[in-house]
Design a protein around this nucleic acid. Structure first.
Lengths: 142, 142
DNA sequence: GTCTCTGCAAAGGGTTTGCAACGCA
DNA sequence: TGCGTTGCAAACCCTTTGCAGAGAC
């Protein structure tokens, strides 16, 4: 799979931004990259604990924050006051989330941009950012 | 403004769904309807307190939950673990949020639906729901 | 009169933070 | 060696809940 390449790219990005490459960070990144759905910090922490990774929950939170800062993870509220995190190192795109298995497909942004341009003219809004998520049932779950 | 009409419609909807029309609920609805941006429960509670409305914070939370249940409010995480609520009684649409003043413009859904149909064919996803928000600077703030 | 709703305060629980030890660069 | 990072646990703080009284219908 392409996880390895993506993780390598992320490692370079972290270094470029003066973040240090620590064992804990890389374990968290590897685990997050291997799960192609939104996971909570607690869930990620539990997975790492199961793998005897010895990473603290606070470190998981801190790393997830770092990953968001470098644009390698996206966050979304998933339950009562709990956030879900997804590894998504690609520049800018959207997600189609399976409501049964949680699987996430990447969706390119082109069409949304077309929508956005029409909107700018209509509303006289200078748009800088948008957030778009689709929910449904993936091919396998159907 | 059209607040009054929307609030009246909501009152009917609440009655139809066997929710009771209480002074507190109506005060909360009126306040939320008069603020055309995402506000937190605490902020709403503070505004009501300032107006000597005498509504408890727990009631604000419970009412906001009720409003979401009847589809009259939408929620969005706005800060560290805090949710923002917006009065939006219209069936289904999207929002353009001004990042300066917080003002929210409604965006019709038609184009997004077109995008959605193309996506269903591409990904073989059976889509049931989507969430789309735009952020930028409104005409007045420019 | 019944049953929902409210207010208060306490509990709950996800997330953040302080600080000393650790370890990457 | 210096400074960013980690782990632990406590602190934080938004949100929910229990319960008795109030109020809508």
């Amino acid at each position: 799979m392409s996880d390895t390449r993506e993780v390598e790219a992320l490692r370079a990005e972290l270094t470029a931004r003066d973040y240090r490459i620590t064992k804990q960070r890389m374990k968290i990144v590897a685990e997050l990259a291997s799960v192609r759905r939104y996971v909570t910090a607690r869930e990620l922490h539990a997975r790492l604990a199961r793998a005897r990774a010895g990473v603290g929950l606070a470190t998981v939170y801190r790393t997830l924050e770092t990953l968001q800062a470098v644009g390698a993870a996206s966050a979304r509220p998933v339950a009562r006051g709990e956030m879900g995190y997804l590894f998504c190192p690609v520049a800018h795109h959207h997600h189609a989330v399976c409501t049964k298995c949680g699987k996430v497909e990447d969706v390119p942004c082109r069409s949304a941009q077309k929508f956005e341009r029409a909107l700018e003219a209509d509303l006289r809004f200078r748009l800088t950012r948008h957030s778009l998520d689709f929910f449904g049932v993936c091919a396998r779950c159907s």
